[in-house]
Design a protein around this nucleic acid. Sequence first.
DNA 1: TCAAACTTTGCAATAGTGTTGCATCCAATT
DNA 2: AATTGGATGCAACACTATTGCAAAGTTTGA
Lengths: 139, 139
Amino acid sequence: MEKTKLEQKLKARRIQPTAMRMLILDFLIRHNEALGLSDLEDHFTRSDRTTLYRTLKTFHDKGMVHEIHDESGITKYALCSDECNCTYPNDMHAHFYCLECDKTLCLTELTVPPVDLPENYQPSSVNYVINGTCSACAS
Amino acid sequence: MEKTKLEQKLKARRIQPTAMRMLILDFLIRHNEALGLSDLEDHFTRSDRTTLYRTLKTFHDKGMVHEIHDESGITKYALCSDECNCTYPNDMHAHFYCLECDKTLCLTELTVPPVDLPENYQPSSVNYVINGTCSACAS
DNA sequence: TCAAACTTTGCAATAGTGTTGCATCCAATT
DNA sequence: AATTGGATGCAACACTATTGCAAAGTTTGA
């Protein structure tokens, strides 16, 4: 994606657009899946772990990405759509985790159903992951 | 719970009923919530981490407990009901994770809805966690 | 009953993820 | 140019998860 577009996206979320952040955002955009810190480390080999870690944290704090906890046990992050505010229940959606290839992706259209919770339980977000085999691994 | 009852439960899952395992099973039964390794460590102070770790793993392998991944980032385990086979979709249910007290509990009655996945995606299990504030923390 | 075979437990060590403190660098502002 | 604040890099550390191996315990069969 072009530099100005990336800048705009970061500014829209009130994130200072540095070179590093634009690279990482671009990387997230190009990969249509949820990524963990180690995925960034593997790609940005000359950047420091901490920078990558804090970038993800900043992105998360500012609502640029959302966190997903799947069977892999590591924390992954996926880009939010431009309109996403990470509010319950509208912005909540399911994810698919492939047990074969270890990849996690957003099923944005698959929103969460309304739920009937016990008395005085107040929901604020949802971590919804469907596990199985993805199409690539099915063959 | 009485010793013979615990033994029966373990044997029903084809788990060799040792003293340690009965203690841990009893602990899990008494706590109506999902527990992590550290919770067991805190309670069974004279047992070794490894034993507790491997007991949970054995319980999981044999279908005595199911794994839950919530925002805490640690792997938690909750007892399956006697009839549970951990099969999709019937045995899958939602969980509630309280962001205040860090506790996770099964919402067994809240089963997972049927979903419409992309072509050739095969589901086999679900990790469904609703985050928010529990009744104890609401006040 | 005893020995062999197998399982469970404990100890030690290690890998991996997540996290923080501090110093340095860079960029924006005056 | 000097000041300020945020971003980055380095080092260190905490915690969870995991494995190898030896010791202890249990089961089985001669």
